[in-house]
Structures are given as structure tokens and as C-alpha cells.
Amino acid sequence: MNQEELGAKQTAKLKQLKDQVIVITGASSGIGLVTARMAAAKGAKLVLAARNEAALKELTEELQQAGHEAVYVRADVGMEDDVNMIAQTALKSFGCFDTWVNNAGVAIYGNAMDVSYQDMKRLFATNYWGVVYGSRTAVNHYRDRGVPGALINMGSVFGDRGTPIQSIYATSKFAIHGWTESLRMELEKEKASVSITLIHPGMIDTPYNEHARSYLEYQPVHKGMIYPPEAVAEAILYAASHPKRDIYVGSQAKMFQLLGANFPRLTDKLWEGISLRTQYDEKRKSNSPEESNLYHAGYGMHERGTNLGWKRKRSIFVKAAKHPVLTRIIVTGISVWAVLKMKRNS
């Protein structure tokens, strides 16, 4: 266990999932939907929030019929009053909550100089202000209760590294990363019993592309290496009961972070060359603006999207984050083996 994780464990001893009440925003599709189903299967009580009330009702009934405890609240996280309503629903239904997952998000595909200011502001209302409202609500609740709790914010590979075409989305994720790191330091300084985790997903196979507001001629998609939403849900639920600073989902997420930090100009040129063809499907015309979920709820109850490429079954990075000691032993063993082999061959 490294010093970072040791310090986190000392300040926030979190409950097991089966004993938790978990709030999940953006629960009607994609990562939020998968996380809700997996959390319920592990025995957690759930407070599900999204703008799509019909999908929330269907999901809640599905979970309740399977013997799980769940309630829902229709809410737009871009509105502070709606976020307060989510918390009040949790308190009324279960008396408290133990983990708050800021998962809700919207996307825009379009060049920075083309996207309207109105669309930019709407995206930031959900992606940034929704996280701020949720973070402060969760932290205040944990402070008031005087017991440890977890706050889990959804970052992105594009929060570590900018990108063409999704420049506005990337900017909102940069803001989330900065907010999360700053809030974590302030709470750590005051020794608050709050575990704050930032999730860094790579390309995930969800309806993200179908829901996005698009300025492109062709339909947005993820291409190349794509990870399942279950891998992100696994990371979220691990962080809910084990204090972690950051969890990367997919090797591409960590690779982009490392390349961008150490070789920024090279990374610029590489990504400029490949980003365009990995973000849309030239065989399909783009959805109309009215079909996006930027200003209203998108369709719900879909875990996967219509993405193209190599669809992975899991993320090794998430597995490594869950078993840090074993991972270090394996890496050390491989390193020693490599050094000995080099010596024998020299």
C-alpha cells in the first residue's frame, strides 16, 4: 500500500457495498445504468437520478422486482434545486447516503470555432456545474453526519488531454479534473472523512455518441479500442468502498495522460493525424440536433452504443487498481526477470 492510499484509508473507512446507499446521476443509460445494476446485485440501496423519468421508472421497477431496494428522482443536475432534490429523496427514503456518483454528462462533436455559445453553456451546466452541485451536496452531507463517505467524479481521457472535434467536452472535463483535485486537497487539509475519486475512462461503448449534439456531417462514433461500460462500473464500485485517488479505465487513458505530460508536441501531432477518422462513421449521416440529449433527455435503458472497433471485455488497468500490491509484485518480478535475462545474454 502506498502512502497516498494509506492516508486515504486513515481518513475515510468506507462501508462495504452491501451496507451502502449509493446515489447515481445519469442512471438511465450507459455507464450509470450498468453501475446501478451491478451495485444492486452487490446489495447496495440505490437512489437513481436522470432526466428520463420513464427509463428511471422502468429501471427502478426492474431492480425492485429482483428484490433490490431502489428509488428514483427525475432531475437535471445542471440545476442546483434538482440536485438538492436528489439528496432529499435519499434522506427521505433511506435516511442517508454513503456514496455519491457524479456520472451524468452530455457531449458535443464540433470544432471549437463552430459550436454556439448557447450550446457550450448548456454542456457546462451539466458536465461541470452538475459535478460541483453534486460534490458540495455530498460533502456537506458527510460533514453533517460526521461519518466517512465517498464522492466519485467522472473524468475522461479528454480531461487529461485535449482533442479536436470534442473540444468543448474536453474543456468541461479539464474543469472537472481541476475541481476534483482542488476539493480533495482542501478536504484533506481539514482532515475531513471524505474519499474523493476521479475516474479516467478511455473510449467506452455507451450511447454517448448517439446522444451527442453533433455539428458534423457524419455520425459520431468511437473507433479503435473500446472498453465496456462494465469496466467503468467496476472502477466506480471499487472506489465506493476502497479510497482511491484516481482510476484509469483502459490503457489508452493512461497512455494519453503520460504522452501528453511528457511529449506534448509529439502527442499534438499524432492526435491531429488520427483523431478525425476515429470519431465519426462516414457511412452514416449525423443525427439532427433535436435528437441529441443536450437540452432534453435522450432515449434510455441502453447500456451500449453503435460504436465501431475492437471492443474489449475488461480493463486491465482497473484490475490493477483493485490489486495494487499484487500488481507491484508482478511488475517487480517481470523487471527482475528482464534484467537477469539481459545479463545472461550479455
Rank of each mutant, 00 (worst) to 15 (best):
G43V: 01
K283L: 12
R304F: 13
I168F: 09
I226W: 03
S288C: 10
G149V: 13
N287K: 13
F124Y: 08
E190W: 15
A150C: 07
Y295K: 09
T35E: 05
M38W: 04
A150M: 08
H68F: 13
V131P: 00
T180W: 04
L259D: 01
N102W: 04
M203K: 11
H68P: 04
Y218L: 11
I334F: 06
S156Y: 03
A112I: 15
A8H: 15
A70W: 03
A239L: 02
A55W: 09
I86F: 11
P324Y: 05
G30I: 06
L216M: 14
E62H: 08
V232C: 11
R51V: 14
G26E: 01
E234R: 14
P228H: 09
L59W: 02
V194T: 10
W310P: 12
A212I: 05
V318N: 02
G146C: 03
E230M: 08
F97C: 06
L340N: 07
L326P: 07
L216H: 12
V83F: 12
V101E: 00
A107R: 08
I334N: 03
R213F: 04
R184Y: 08
E190N: 11
E234A: 13
V83L: 14
K13C: 13
M225L: 10
V336K: 06
I329A: 12
R37F: 09
K322V: 02
D205Q: 00
W179V: 03
I22E: 00
G178N: 03
I165T: 06
I108G: 06
V157A: 08
L326S: 08
L59F: 01
S286G: 00
L266P: 00
H200W: 11
D119P: 01
F317S: 05
Q3F: 15
K322W: 06
L294H: 05
P201D: 02
V115S: 04
S315T: 04
P243R: 02
F94E: 05
L259H: 05
N153L: 00
N2P: 08
E210M: 14
S346G: 14
I236P: 00
V21K: 05
K92I: 08
V21A: 07
I196E: 02
A231E: 00
V147R: 04
Q166T: 14
K311I: 07
M85W: 15
H323F: 12
Q279N: 14
K244W: 11
I108A: 06
K9D: 05
G159C: 00
T171I: 09
I329T: 14
M120K: 12
Q219S: 13
E62S: 07
V249N: 00
A90V: 13
N111H: 13
L56Q: 02
A66G: 03
